[in-house]
Simulated assay, not measured.
Amino acid sequence: MTPRFVVLHYTAMATADAAIERLCDPASDVSAHYVICKSGRVTQLVPEGLRAWHAGAGEWRGLTDINSRSIGIELDNDGQTPFAEPLMHSLEHLLTGILSAWNIPPENVIGHSDMAPGRKFDPGPRFDWARLEAQGLAGRRGHDIGPSDPTPQGFAQVAKQAGYTADVDPDTLLAAVRLRYRPFETGPLDPQDYTPLGHAARWA
């Protein structure tokens, strides 16, 4: 396997050790390449060049079977609280090495929720994507406001260009994009929902 993507998850378990135990249990039918605990300890469970069962059904940039194309990193977090500073520091160090070793562009660091909209919600609303973007460890968001009369069809096209190609309804797509870029935003589609996707030149 030659990894093309990195997929970030949260463990949603009481402890990192409990998550590792589950990820190492053949009966669980789930695995990941790395687990990072709140203290910053990094545990590798699967070699980077081998397939792990962390992504499941989904699609990104028109590609399915993301398990065969990605490195999965589980983060010790419940999905509702801020991510610990030592954990984030270790994640940044780990991502720097992975992206360099496998020539993976920052744009290919995604969340589980990006490739499986509506089915998965990790790494969740508290994950600091902007922090990774600032260090070149995730794709940078755009800054131009979208069209004044946004439509679900137009938004779906822009989101597709950004990588969100899974076949989901407009509300699910909007929720997935917001979870990544505007996690606490509610209400109908807004011009600012286009902003982070970075396709201002294609909005007309």
Rank of each mutant, 00 (worst) to 15 (best):
V158I: 15
A134F: 08
N77E: 05
F5S: 01
L91M: 10
S70N: 01
F5I: 02
H93Y: 07
G111P: 02
G118R: 12
A138F: 02
L94P: 01
A176K: 05
W102A: 12
T186M: 13
P183I: 08
T172F: 02
P152N: 05
E74K: 01
D76Y: 00
N108C: 03
A138S: 09
W102P: 09
R182K: 14
Q192L: 13
R178F: 05
K160Q: 14
L45C: 05
Q80G: 10
I20E: 06
L50Q: 07
W60R: 03
F184S: 14
G142W: 04
D190T: 15
G56D: 13
G97L: 03
V177W: 01
A27W: 01
T195I: 09
Y181Q: 06
A175H: 10
A138H: 03
G79M: 09
P117N: 08
P125S: 11
P150S: 04
H93W: 09
D171A: 14
P105N: 04
K38Y: 01
R119L: 15
A159Q: 08
D169F: 05
A55K: 08
N77A: 11
H112M: 14
A200Y: 09
G187A: 15
Y10K: 12
P26W: 03
S28N: 12
R61Q: 13
P3W: 07
C24A: 11
L63T: 01
F127N: 13
S31Y: 00
L94R: 06
D149I: 02
G198W: 08
G56V: 10
Y164N: 12
L173I: 05
K160F: 11
V168F: 04
G56S: 13
P147S: 00
S68N: 11
F155T: 02
D190P: 06
G118E: 12
Y164P: 11
P123F: 14
A176I: 11
L63V: 04
G72D: 07
L8C: 10
V30G: 07
P26Y: 01
G72T: 02
K120C: 12
T172V: 07
F121V: 15
F121H: 15
H143I: 11
T43L: 00
L137Y: 05
R141N: 06
T2G: 14
G72Q: 05
H9S: 07
L63M: 07
R41Y: 13
A130S: 14
V6S: 01
R51C: 10
D190M: 13
P3F: 07
P123R: 14
E21M: 04
D193G: 06
G142Y: 04
V46W: 03
A156P: 02
D25P: 02
E185D: 15
L23I: 08
S100I: 05
P150A: 04
G154C: 04
G136L: 10
Y10E: 09
F155W: 02
G187H: 15
Q192R: 13
P3G: 07
T96C: 09
L75M: 08
A12H: 09
R41F: 12
F83Q: 10
E21N: 07
G49M: 08
A52K: 06
P82W: 11
P150Y: 03
L75A: 03
Y34G: 03
N67C: 06
A156M: 05
A134I: 09
S113C: 14
P147M: 00
D167P: 10
T15R: 00
T195M: 15
R182S: 12
V46G: 05
V6F: 01
H54Q: 12
E85G: 07
H33L: 01
R140D: 02
D17T: 11
N108T: 00
A175E: 11
V30D: 09
A138N: 04
